[in-house]
Design a binder for these strands. Structure first.
Length: 371
DNA sequence: TCTGGGGTCCTAGGACCC
DNA sequence: TCTGGGGTCCTAGGACCC
């Protein structure tokens, strides 16, 4: 989906079309309807506090404002940009709508998050571009939103292609076009090559996918290890055999929170304790609502200097009760030194097993030791 | 005035078992 | 007195993605 969160907001606020709009922030005010009936919006320059850009419109991106950027920094680049609070319920609603629209045409779908999917089109006997146009049309009819589609022989290339003609684009690519259309791109366009790997490649003199493709696989194995080295080599040549994963169970469920200001374990004990307990209760709610119990409870803590530490505890039983989670998380917390100020706390439940009705207790009994 | 929140996957070391 | 080889589970950290 194109600039998904921002585009959903524009459905509610059409008068903002064509403007630099940013979604994000923690305590952003909803637009206010004024006496003359027009709406008054917050501006980026008025924002104070922590928070990052979740999504920006293409007009905002023209100012250099992208997802993940701190709002204070964005405000320097585009002070007049409109700032809207995130409205996740609406995004989930439109996410379900667009996925259903695609499924009505091509039902083999791998979910890749709220605004992205892989679709298996190989069994659909229709000319490729016409099919892509039909899917885009169905998505627009269902949601009023545009998307960009990449069509190729595999997931790796399709993902790259989907970004080549954004927004509202269609890109079809065959293997024979890789040298001309893929090799000139930056290595980090490969899904899985992030900032760290990209930096390391650059230090080795490799910047483009073509330069990566030109390196002997032995060289890559030498610098990145066997499995990553081979993967880098294959990816640069457009080779990717991964099948679509159409069903999966969650591996973990977590909640975390960055504080308005850094807190001290001793001085702000009461406040921290309240946040900690609330995170545990929210994880418990999520577990129950989604029908899972967890055997491993973990916590995450980020210090003021942004260093993160984690601790976890595996129990003999599976739990989904807030108090039990709070107790396990408390044990984890005891193992972390708390001399410095903290900016974030998180609680995570993993080693999940499905629970059906009364079987929560059963899950515990089954995994208990025999003595 | 840096840097959200929810995830997955991988690696590596140590405990422990056969 | 010295010390194999294979396997699983747990823990901690980190890269990466949406």
């Amino acid at each position: 989906m194109d600039a998904f969160f921002a585009s959903v907001e524009l459905l509610s606020f059409p008068e903002l079309r064509g403007q630099a709009v940013v979604v994000g922030g923690r305590s952003v005010h909803q637009p206010v309807v004024q006496l003359d009936g027009t709406r008054r919006f917050s501006r980026l320059r008025d924002y104070v506090g922590r928070g990052v850009v979740t999504t920006s419109t293409y007009e905002a991106r023209a100012f250099g404002v992208f997802s993940g950027m701190g709002l204070m920094k964005s405000a320097r680049l585009a002070p007049e940009a409109i700032l809207l609070p995130a409205n996740f319920d609406a995004y989930r609603h439109y996410s379900r709508k667009f996925k259903a629209a695609v499924a009505s045409i091509a039902p083999i779908i791998e979910d890749r998050g709220i605004d992205e999917i892989y679709i298996d089109l190989s069994a659909i006997p229709e000319e490729t571009k016409a099919l892509a146009r039909r899917i885009k049309h169905a998505v627009f009819e269902a949601t009023g939103l545009t998307c960009s589609i990449g069509i190729s022989p595999n997931k790796l290339l399709s993902k790259i292609c989907s970004e080549l003609d954004k927004p509202d684009g269609i890109t079809v690519l065959g293997m024979e076009e890789i040298p001309a259309r893929i090799w000139p791109l930056a290595a980090k366009k490969i899904n899985g090559i992030g900032p760290k790997s990209s930096e390391k490649l650059a230090r080795l003199g490799i910047n483009s996918i073509g330069e990566l493709a030109a390196m002997p696989v032995e060289f890559l194995v030498q610098h990145f290890g066997r499995s990553t080295g081979i993967w880098l080599h294959e990816a640069a040549h457009g080779v990717d055999e991964r099948p679509l994963v159409t069903e999966s169970e969650p591996k973990s469920i977590s909640r975390e929170s960055t504080f308005e200001r850094d807190l001290h374990a001793r001085l702000d004990r009461a406040e921290l304790s309240k946040i900690f307990t609330s995170l545990c209760m929210r994880v418990a709610d999520d577990l129950k609502r989604k029908g899972y119990a967890s055997q491993t409870i973990g916590i995450k803590l980020r210090y003021a200097d942004f260093r993160a530490v984690t601790r976890d505890l595996t129990m003999q039983v599976h739990v989904n009760d807030g108090n039990q989670i709070r107790k396990a998380a408390g044990e984890c917390l005891k193992r972390i030194p708390l001399t410095q100020k903290i900016r974030l706390l998180g609680v995570r439940a993993s080693s999940l097993v499905p629970t059906v009705g009364e079987q929560v207790e059963m899950a515990g009994i089954q995994t208990e030791l025999p003595f």
